[in-house]
Design a protein around this nucleic acid. Structure first.
Lengths: 76, 76
DNA sequence: TTGTGACTCATAGTCCGTA
DNA sequence: TTACGGACTATGAGTCACA
């Protein structure tokens, strides 16, 4: 279902943010958005636009496609 | 710049739609949206959400990451 | 077959406070 | 450090008539 996309993106945001070793506040600051928004994003409650995903990719230093990687697809 | 993301996504939508050999109207029908929306999308005038991209991926039978592939990065 | 402007309505995203 | 809530504004979703 499409709600799964929000969850998937949120999980990836949190994973990549923690990998970068920064707080939600720091990420928000880098992106120029509100910290509360990051919180909702990571929880899968938000449906970001592609421009927002682009900002995320810049702030975290990863490619946009990284946010659409699924967790544990068995076959690879 | 972030506007480039819209252009990139739009170009990929058009490319993948043509590869599928269908009209904007047909794609719109598969997604359950208006044809005019697809038109704006392909022209890079729209900033779709990740859920919209998910619908696109289902309608075109491709992975979401496909819409974020850059054209002609020299190094590969 | 596709593009465009004008439109309504939902939601993206902000800012405040509180826990 | 993060979550949560309400109230708010900006903008995206989605449609239509016409070119």
């Amino acid at each position: 279902m499409s709600e799964d996309v929000r969850i998937m993106v949120g999980e990836n945001v949190r994973r990549l943010r923690l990998a970068a070793g920064i707080s939600q506040a720091k990420l928000a600051e880098r992106m120029g958005v509100d910290r509360a928004y990051i919180s909702g994003l990571e929880k899968g409650e938000r449906n970001p636009t592609v421009v927002t995903v682009w900002h995320l990719s810049k702030a975290l230093g990863v490619k946009m496609r990284t946010f659409f990687e699924e967790k544990d697809k068995k076959g690879r």
